[in-house]
């Protein structure tokens, strides 16, 4: 292969400052915006290029539906290139976290930072933060890609078009270039011979591989994976997990992964977050979480799934 299909585009500096947000204009410490207490900490350097700037930071993130608190003042960080697995019982808020990161949902409170820039908010000229407009969200979600449990391939397009659509219409790639890259990605996911196939002609496992290729084609900094093998027939799960292991091993993409496949989580994770009722009850390396869990809820959960 002449080029590495997973290589980042040169020049696509993640987290470059948006217009109207000079990097030096750090908000005052007594910022009137209660949702941005620590905005000073990351605004003073070229964001996203400092290795110590977390790739993702949740800061007092809240999500409510009416009175129902789904995420409760959540704080956590993910380093650049880190692979993080979210585990926990059903309804504990794992999907909600990924959907907030993908900007499919709006926050009820707090701030999400990606590459040192606010994802959910825009900086105001005064140095504070205000909720982002739809247009601003569209710009900031480019750094992030997502693979869904139900694949969500476009049934009106063949496999190749599924992968080239967004690179052409969003990134502005030439068709030839987009198709060449799509073919490379299809090779990578083991479907080099199904370029012209229609999604409905593929097995669930093959569809999910295409969905992974589609997400990677946008060269995201962060890849979100929400139970991507849960809708698959059992015999197809291992192949998709192997592919994800390979991507985790071969690339520097930051991965957030909700899964019930504990051996997979153990293999690829740098950090495991155990959720219960919208809070992190325990977090640590896979060794710690899987062999010496401290929290009772973690032990109960692992006993139930292992």
């Amino acid at each position: 292969m002449a080029t590495d299909p997973l290589e980042k585009t040169p020049g696509s500096t993640p987290g470059s400052a948006p217009p109207g947000a000079p990097a030096g204009a750090a908000p005052a410490a007594d910022s009137p915006s209660p949702s941005a207490p620590a905005a000073t900490a990351t605004a003073d350097a070229v964001p996203g290029q400092r290795s110590d700037t977390p790739m993702i930071r949740f800061e007092q993130v809240e999500k409510r539906y009416g009175d129902h608190v789904v995420l409760d003042k959540l704080d956590f960080e993910v380093r650049r290139g880190e692979h993080v697995t979210l585990i926990g019982p059903s309804g504990s808020g794992k999907t909600t976290i990924l959907r907030l990161l993908m900007t499919l949902e709006r926050l009820s409170g707090g701030v999400i930072w990606v590459g040192g820039e606010p994802l959910s908010h825009a900086r105001t000229p005064g140095g504070g933060l205000k909720p982002a407009t739809e247009k601003q969200l569209r710009a900031s979600r480019r750094k992030i890609g997502m693979v869904f449990q139900q694949f969500n391939l476009f049934p009106n397009m063949n496999v190749l078009r599924n992968i080239t659509e967004a690179p052409i219409s969003v990134l502005g790639l030439e068709r030839d270039e987009a198709e060449a890259r799509a073919r490379e990605l299809l090779e990578l996911v083991g479907l080099g011979d199904r370029v012209d196939a229609h999604p409905t002609q593929l097995s669930g496992g093959q569809q999910q591989r295409v969905a992974i290729a589609r997400a990677l084609a946008m060269r995201p900094d962060v890849l979100l994976l929400d139970e991507v093998t849960s809708a698959l027939d059992p015999e197809l799960v291992a192949g998709v997990l192997d592919l994800l292991r390979q991507i985790a091993h071969d690339t520097d993409i930051t991965m957030l992964c909700v899964t019930h496949e504990m051996s997979f989580a153990r293999d690829v994770s740098d950090q495991v977050l155990m959720f219960d009722a919208g809070r992190i009850v325990e977090q640590g390396t896979p060794e710690k979480i899987f062999t010496a869990p401290e929290h009772r809820r973690t032990r109960e959960f692992l006993n139930a799934v292992l």
């Binding site: 900007t103 499919l104 569209r138 967004a166 969003v170």
Partner: peptide, 13 residues
């Protein structure tokens, strides 16, 4: 709904 969400996840206008 998943189709709309896939579009958003790909930053499509």
């Amino acid at each position: 709904r998943g189709q709309w969400e896939a579009c958003r996840a790909l930053s499509m206008s």
